[in-house]
Simulated scan of single mutants.
Amino acid sequence: MSLITNVMDHSLDDGYAEAAARRKAHGEAGGVPKTLRAKLGLAAGLVLAALVVTVGAAQAHVAAPVVAKERQELINRIDSETSSADKLEGDVDKLRDDVSARQRAALKKSGGSGQADLVGVLSGATAVHGPGVKLVVNDAKEASSGQAGNPRETSGFSDTGRVRDRDMQRVVNGLWASGAEAISINGQRLTVLSAIRAAGDAILVDNKPLVPPYTVLAVGDGKKLSTRFQDSADGLYLHALEQNYGIRTAISTESDVRLPAAPSVIVRTAQPSTEKGTS
């Protein structure tokens, strides 16, 4: 019974009690209490963090004018190069017009002017104007970019509301089949060598990106051309896009539409050979 009483009265060993007493006496003698040490450590950490933030902000403030200057220099270079490219393109157009005029003059002397003019019109090498139709094709009002960047596959034709390159291909082919004599899209003249392709969500005509709405001008008999196109399979396809996907279209007959010449097209005529073949 005395053993149980001793354990209850002295739950801690005397050695533990003496060690606790020594630690307490050492702390009171000049050491820093744990709570105070923790507060000092936290304060030091905050001061260090504030110092790092201040130094970073100062460096950013010093570097900001340099970054702004480099950005402005880059913008100026882009503007300069764009102006140079526009000037070169203008020079190319002038030279092309001069070559075409000289070519027509040379062919006129040889008695082939009428045929050369016809070939130039059909090939897209010369600008044309006359009656025709104006067809405007635009994305739906709430068009999205589709899924996985390939919104209109043959399987699961996604409702994105965006006009695709294959849509414009069908529009152009339908107009040719309906009797169009010359066609342009957003000022880009089409020829037999023209390509309508896609790069992401953009439509390219002869590697030049176009921005919706897409304005298609076609020279021909306006009323007949409009009626034939709308009744054709490609016209009905465009109507289905309008009904099912919200694609916006508008077609009208025009008394005079003007189409520019296609760039980088030079008409060359062949002459029959006078040499006799060897057997």
Rank of each mutant, 00 (worst) to 15 (best):
V62S: 06
A64C: 00
A64M: 12
A64Q: 14
P65V: 05
P65Y: 11
P65F: 07
V67R: 12
V67W: 07
V67E: 12
K69N: 13
E70Q: 14
E73L: 12
L74H: 07
L74I: 08
I75W: 07
I75V: 09
N76G: 06
R77E: 08
S80F: 09
S80E: 11
T82I: 09
S84C: 04
A85L: 15
D86Q: 10
L88G: 07
E89K: 11
D91K: 12
D93R: 10
D93V: 13
K94C: 01
L95G: 07
D97P: 02
D97A: 15
V99N: 12
A101L: 08
A101P: 06
Q103F: 12
R104F: 12
A106L: 05
L107T: 09
K108N: 14
K109S: 10
S110A: 14
G111H: 05
G111L: 02
G112L: 10
G112M: 11
G112E: 09
S113W: 10
S113P: 01
G114Q: 12
A116L: 09
D117H: 14
L118V: 10
V119G: 05
S123E: 04
S123W: 00
G124P: 03
T126M: 10
V128R: 07
V128Q: 14
H129K: 06
H129R: 14
G132D: 01
G132M: 03
V133D: 00
V133N: 02
K134I: 11
K134V: 13
K134N: 09
V136I: 15
V137L: 10
N138V: 05
N138Q: 00
E142D: 15
A143V: 04
S144E: 00
S144D: 08
S144V: 05
Q147E: 14
G149C: 01
N150G: 03
P151A: 00
R152G: 03
R152P: 03
E153G: 14
S155H: 10
S155T: 15
G156R: 00
D159K: 00
D159W: 02
D159Y: 02
G161R: 01
G161H: 04
R162Y: 04
D165R: 09
